[in-house]
Design a binder for these strands. Structure first.
Lengths: 104, 104
DNA sequence: CCTGTAATTCCACAGTTATCGAATTAGGTG
DNA sequence: CACCTAATTCGATAACTGTGGAATTACAGG
């Protein structure tokens, strides 16, 4: 995992709106959510949502698939997995980030 | 862990410069690093570094402690731990983010 | 082809961020 | 106190971000 990619993905998640969007998608599971459903859940105008989705897609955290007239959005789980892996491997020392030691 | 705090911390880490700063601090371990040493490692002007450090400190990811004329910076490991915890607990579904399934 | 729904793209604007030289504050030493 | 090093704060500027209404593209059905 490249540090530049990690930074871009962290930045993509680093907006309350986008984090809520992403979380909604993760919670939607494998079936994903249409943009419309996402919009109702997050409660923002369509154009704003579209911009945020675009950013999430650019970093590889989200993909879209067209089903007739609706676009289904899905979280890309492997991307999140490697991002978390980066944080743990590159940014944490084992002793300090391991569960042992102190209960946060 | 509040989603707003998570977003602010993700944003703080979501800049290549700040991510490098943070990583350097984590790697420095418990002893931390003086601002000067950090500056040499990351290679940016002091004032720029100071701003980035300030942002990291505001989100609770980094702390500073004065030792005479030098300021020692340290990564706050529990903060990273709970951020990673948030990503795993709130943004990942067990089945999809568990190590089982596929090897990323 | 006309219509309707889905979603994006266009456009504009206010607010924020990154950057860094210069000035300033903090703290120790002769 | 004068001086030195460490680091921050000030000030200014260019670039980017978030936001959302309006126009546009994409697709299906009658």
């Amino acid at each position: 995992m490249d540090i530049e990619l990690a930074a871009r993905q962290l930045e993509a998640l680093g907006s309350p709106t986008r984090l809520k969007v992403y979380r909604a998608l993760v919670r939607a599971g494998h079936d994903g959510l249409p943009v419309r459903g996402l919009q109702q859940r997050v409660g923002i105008p369509a154009s704003t949502l579209s911009h945020h989705l675009h950013r999430l897609i650019l970093t590889g955290l989200v993909v879209q698939e067209r089903q007739a007239t609706t676009l289904i959005c899905r979280a890309v789980y492997p991307a999140m997995r490697s991002l978390v892996g980066f944080l743990v491997d590159e940014c944490c020392l084992d002793e300090q980030c391991g569960r042992a030691g102190e209960a946060a």
